[in-house]
Design a protein around this nucleic acid. Sequence first.
DNA 1: CGCGTTTGACCGGCGC
DNA 2: GCGCCGGTCAAACGCG
Length: 611
Amino acid sequence: MDKGWGLTLDTSSSTSLPFFSSKPPPPPPPPLSMSFFSKDTTMFPALGFPVNLSRPTNNEEEEEEGDQNRMVVGEVDFFSDRNKSSSSARHDRNHLLHQHVKPIIKKELLCADEKPYNSNLQVNTGLQLVTANIGSDQSTVDDGVTSEAEDKRAKNTELAQMQMELQRMNSENQKLKEMLSHVNGNYTALQMHLVALMQQQQLQKPRSDSTENEVVQKKAEEKKHGIGGELVQRQFLDLGPSGTVAEVDDHVSNSSSDERTRSSTPQNNKIEAGVTRNYVRNTNGKNELAREESPGSESQGWGPNKLQKLNAPNVMDQSNIEATMRKARVSVRARSEAPMISDGCQWRKYGQKMAKGNPCPRAYYRCTMAVGCPVRKQVQRCAEDRTILVTTYEGTHNHPLPPAAMAMASTTSAAASMLLSGSMTSADGIMNPNLLSRAILPCSSNMATLSASAPFPTVTLDLTNNDPNPLELQRHHHNHNHSAPLFQLPFPVGQNPQNFGVATPFAQALYNQSKFSGLQFSQDHQVGSSQVPPLAPRTNLQIQPNQQQPSLADTVSAATAAITADPNFTAMLAAAISSIIGGAHGNNNNGDNNNPNINNMASKLSSFSGN
DNA sequence: CGCGTTTGACCGGCGC
DNA sequence: GCGCCGGTCAAACGCG
């Protein structure tokens, strides 16, 4: 060891660290010699920060022996093995400096001057590193002048003060450690956020080769920088769903704003006029769908293959999961004699296949309400019960929706969002969908289920009812092309409202969305006088107002339960309900534009989601 | 003729 | 490597 060398970290620039300003260090005890910082500061290139080299003054040299016994505040004595402390943090720090700083300094010093310094090196890092240098093994100093009794007394006082000082420094070290972990936490969170944002940007950019290379490069860089590429990736994967949720939420918020801003565009006028021109004739006179395969459109769409192909093997896992998250589907089962249920959107059939295990063909539709809309759906009759039409939606509309379509889109996107809810890890969402199913819809097993066996996470909204007296609702005719399918609503007949549990708001939302989206109930009873207005007079609806329809308080409390269970659910549900209300406003023929209770609930939910 | 549908080919993933 | 299967493409077709 290079005894006699001292490196002092200059704390003079940070004596008033805000975190500990409330507890100023006590004045140094007179018997202790402080290390006096020289004003000479030398920059060590290899260190990158100024090092204050100072030969000890004569005084200090004279006091060298006494110096062994000093307590040094704001100083790290690297070169003394007296520097033993119970504080592991200090030990680590000293170890670090021993390993990395000392050799550099030693080398540079030897280059500068053959004669080794017998002084403290003061390294001004601007950091406050506090440590104690207590020479316990050489604590006895006999100057031969003072009497033994005096010496003992002074020693005792000194010892007590040193112990106090040590205690204080230990606590400060502890606080520093806490602060460090806090900063580390913030750093990690920011890093994750950055990675998520970058990833989102990547998804929005065209998936060109260069982009792919960038992704690979970034990942390599992350690994190289030792921020634990693996860790960051895993953390990001945990964020996966929230990313997707953000996408959906963005869409929900954008679509409303887009609707406002784009409502006067020719395209929108076209849509409103019910005209779709999604094909363009190319120069060959060939029909070609004018799709702006927007960056993620392919990946958002039904085709997973290309996305996976583009990803390098080392990012396969992540991309697989991302693709999986994007491919979350919402399947709607409804009784319908029509070949396709009307959901307010315009669709173009682009394919039909015979699927295995089902004699009924599966039809593939693409949303044609806007160029490049990635939303697709599959329509297939249930093999067991051919009156049941299974419509599977995937993707998020990139365009404003007519009120009639808003509700279904909101419901499906809300369901998809729930599926991808970031409140649980992606692994939970995918690997254990039943968990989600139970958490969100514990009492509605026949209404919404999650398929674990499906290749992609799928929420199934079962709008059929096994009850022999199903709640039927007739699709109200608007200017839709398709015939009027017959729907059933999933509300269990005769069920105690208390048993609705947290499923109630969602079921209610579904109920309302069906109603507001142009689906009309026929009923004899006025369902839920406060929440559901009277509709068509014809009825086979068997919901008892008091039995079937939970009170607003029940609904709100159930919603609150759901909200507290999953904050993300709040935003989604609020978005869905808001859109439903929006749909109601746009759907004047429903005559329920200003249902105060629903508005109230939505505003409550919105205020919750704002938290 | 324009536009939506049909349908066979094609592609990629996946399991054996 | 091969075959199966789901999903997509696009030429051909048909309807208004």
